[in-house]
Design a protein around this nucleic acid. Sequence first.
DNA 1: CCGCCAGCCTGAAGGC
DNA 2: TGCCTTCAGGCTGGCG
Length: 264
Amino acid sequence: MPELPEVETITRQLGEQVLGQRVKGVEILDPKLQGKGIERIRTDVITSLRRRGKNIIIGFETGLYLIAHPRMTGKFLWHPDGHPLQHLRAIFQLSGGDLCWVDQRRFGSLMVSEDLRLLSGLGVEPLSPGFTDGYLYQIGQRSSRQIKELLMDQRRIAGIGNIYAAEILFSAGIHPQRRANTLSREEIAILVQRTKVILNKAIEEKGTTIADYLDTRGNTGGYQKLLQVYGRVGFPCPHCGRPIERIRQSGRSTYFCPHCQRMK
DNA sequence: CCGCCAGCCTGAAGGC
DNA sequence: TGCCTTCAGGCTGGCG
C-alpha cells in the first residue's frame, strides 16, 4: 500500500524513535516470516535508517540490515503500549519499547541480509538529482509501454505506485495510456517536475491514507485531502468540472480526466 | 523485450 | 440476517 511518501515518512519517524536502541528480543508471530534470518538481529544496536524505493532499511552495528517492504498493508507501529493490536505479525523488543510489524493481508516482507544487493534492481530515486528530463526521455524513447506503467516500473523509477502515478499524470495533463515513446521533450520535462513537486508535497503531508495506511505513531496521512483524481470517479475534475473517469490498466484502476488528459 | 493473468492474503462494502 | 461478488495503495512468476 504505501508508496514513496508513506515509506519516507515511516523511515524518518523511525529515525527519531528507534535509532541507537538495542534489540532485546524478536518475536515472530506469522509463520510466513520464518526463515528470513530475522532472528540474527537478536542483540544488535540500530545505527541507521534509510529508504530505497518502497523499502525501509534498518541498519545494525554488526553490519546486518533488516529490509522491510510493506506491500499493501504492512506497517511499523512504534510502542503502541496497551492498545490491542490486530494483525500483529512480528515484535522487535528494543531498549526503549516495542516496534511492532502489523500487516493485515500478510503480503509484506521482512528479511535480514548483510548486503543490500537484493535492492540493486531498483531504478532511480525520483527525488534524487539522477531523475532528470534526460533520463525519463531516454527510457521513454525505448519503451512503447503506457506511460503510467512506466512510471510505476520499480526497475526504472523506484517508489511511485498507483495513487501518485494517477496524480502526477493529471497534474502534467498527460493521458495515462499514452505510449511512453510518443511523449515530447516538453511533456517529459513537465512530468519530471510534477513528480518531484507531488512527491515532496505528499511527504510534507506525511502520506496519503485511503483506507489502511498509518504512520509509526498510528496517525493517518494528510495528502488524501489534496487528491485531484485518485478514487474520485464521477466527481468533477478540479480543472474543467467534467466527471473523473476510471479505467483498468493491467488489472488496476486508473483515475483521470479525459478532457484535461488527452490521448493526442 | 512486451502484455496479461493468477497468485499471494484479509476484510470491507455493496447487491440481492 | 446471510450469501455472493468485487475491490483494495504491490509485486512475482509463468505463459504466449
